[in-house]
Amino acid sequence: MSALQTVKFYQTGTFTVGNRLLAPEDRSVQANMQRTNSLNSGHRACQGCGEALGARYAIDAAMNATNRQLIAANATGCLEVFSTPYPETSWQIPWIHSLFGNTAAVATGIAAAIKVKKQKGQGQDVRVVAQGGDGGTTDIGFGCLSGMFERNDDVLYICYDNGGYMNTGVQRSSATPSAARTATTMPLGPEPGNPFGQGKFVPAIAMAHEIPYVATATVADLRDLENKVTKAMGMRGARYIHILVPCPLGWGTASQDTIRMARLAKETGVFPVFEAEYGELTSALAIRRPLPVEDYLKPQKRFAHLFGKNPAVETIARIQAQADKNIRRYGLLAKETV
């Protein structure tokens, strides 16, 4: 890299998808005319679906990193339903859907089979990705996920977090943010929306398993996401990437704002973007233009009850405090390290 490239210009830097003046090998996977489009056109995701985008970003990157030697296991959920309704599938890679809560274990089985086949000289070095939404990961699939982590099975698990059970009609999951309206946490009563003090942040729990690699990412920073997937595929053992994928339907945002919402989540500190190895934080993607959480909350109808004539100032302050805690804990205002 020349000194010039210390500045990320769009021609050579990392903010845009492509960088026409970068050496081809340094360009993003998504910029490639021959990218795999692992998730093909014709899927039935909603307009502006963050999960469809995140899945293609991640799986294409994994395909690229493994020289297309990849098998994916998929949890029940939006991604599964919109990609594989009989008689058509959008997946261009070997892919299996078993159940809602067992994806990590299915992937373990795939990895075990691959290992034996390779040992026997009957197969190539094929790699495994498991993927699911936040419900399939942080709730119903959590047991299998933790087991896969603990055994350090050779699986990259990718969670596409849109903060709820969107496929079944936007119900609350353990990844639904505080105060958010869902079909099961209506904005009613003394504590409207999803209660504070509940839910879990699985990346931190994954770190507690001391697995080789844990990372978070969003669909707003493609290069970061691709780098993390590529890095993960360069490692062995249990790996976990948690990708924030805004859901226009569940969040009540405009379909064109999906990337913008992910960007705001990161820039406000609501969603920390970092990586960790063997339980230790190794880097964080710095906030570039610090913003108050209102900027993130306001465009979303699921937080509409916090605004209006009598804004819920205290509730907003509590969400701001959560973001501030993320900023402190993950060092999000430090100089950019990536």
């Binding site: 500045v7 021609q11 998808v17 960088n19 026409r20 998504q30 489009n37 998730l39 985008l53």
Partner: peptide, 28 residues
């Protein structure tokens, strides 16, 4: 000079940054 040229935003004119190609959830 190269640095300065690269500061151009290319307002209103496609500079082939691949964003549209990348961000489309439908590969369209």
């Amino acid at each position: 000079a190269l640095f300065e040229a690269r500061r151009c935003l290319s307002c209103g004119n496609c500079f082939e940054c691949d964003n549209c190609y990348g961000v489309c959830p439908d590969n369209a």
